[in-house]
């Protein structure tokens, strides 16, 4: 397993009904990485928020556009990229949902959750696409598998 790398890429119509498929694929790959119940849930939430943002904010719910998901398993981390075909956005310009004046706002917490659940979150531009959100999470160490994790020796 150590040197093998899994890489999964899919492109889908930018439709909210596909969010579940995106989640299932991400979960399946994450399970292969040995993440336990908590890690899997955090990855699920991050991918969910990110896909919805790509479809709603990036692609503005335009069904003619596409959303891309790419998952790469590196020896130390799982890297997830979500692409849209929208105008560029800078996450540093987004209002802080923890500011007192934003605390009671009905939206604006998705990126906060992604940042809480993943080890890295950044946004770049992707050629022929638009925004590319890159999220990574360190793999659970094989000697101390996370509670409820799938032992990697079973693969």
């Amino acid at each position: 397993m150590a040197k093998e790398t899994i890489r999964v890429e899919i492109t889908l119509e930018s439709n909210l009904k596909h969010v579940e498929l995106i989640e299932v694929i991400a979960q399946t790959v994450a399970k292969q990485c040995g993440f336990g119940e908590d890690g899997l849930h955090e990855i699920l939430m991050a991918v969910h928020e990110c896909a919805i943002n790509a479809i709603c904010h990036g692609n503005k719910e335009d069904l003619q556009k596409q959303v891309g998901l790419s998952l790469s398993v590196h020896p130390d981390r799982l890297e997830i990229r979500v692409r849209d075909q929208g105008k560029s956005f800078n996450p540093n310009d987004v209002p802080d949902p923890l500011d007192k004046e934003n605390l009671m706002k009905p939206a604006g917490r998705g990126i906060l959750l992604i940042q809480a659940f993943m080890d890295e979150f950044r946004v770049g531009r992707c050629e022929n696409w638009g925004n590319e959100v890159i999220m990574t999470k360190r793999l659970p160490s094989p000697s101390q598998p996370e509670k409820g994790g799938v032992g990697r020796e079973h693969q």
């Binding site: 939430m45 919805i52 706002k105 009905p106 939206a107 604006g108 917490r109 998705g110 959750l113």
Partner: peptide
């Protein structure tokens, strides 16, 4: 499970 939209709905 609650997502960011659900949290917004609770608020």
């Amino acid at each position: 499970y609650i997502d960011s939209t659900g949290i917004g709905e609770l608020v």
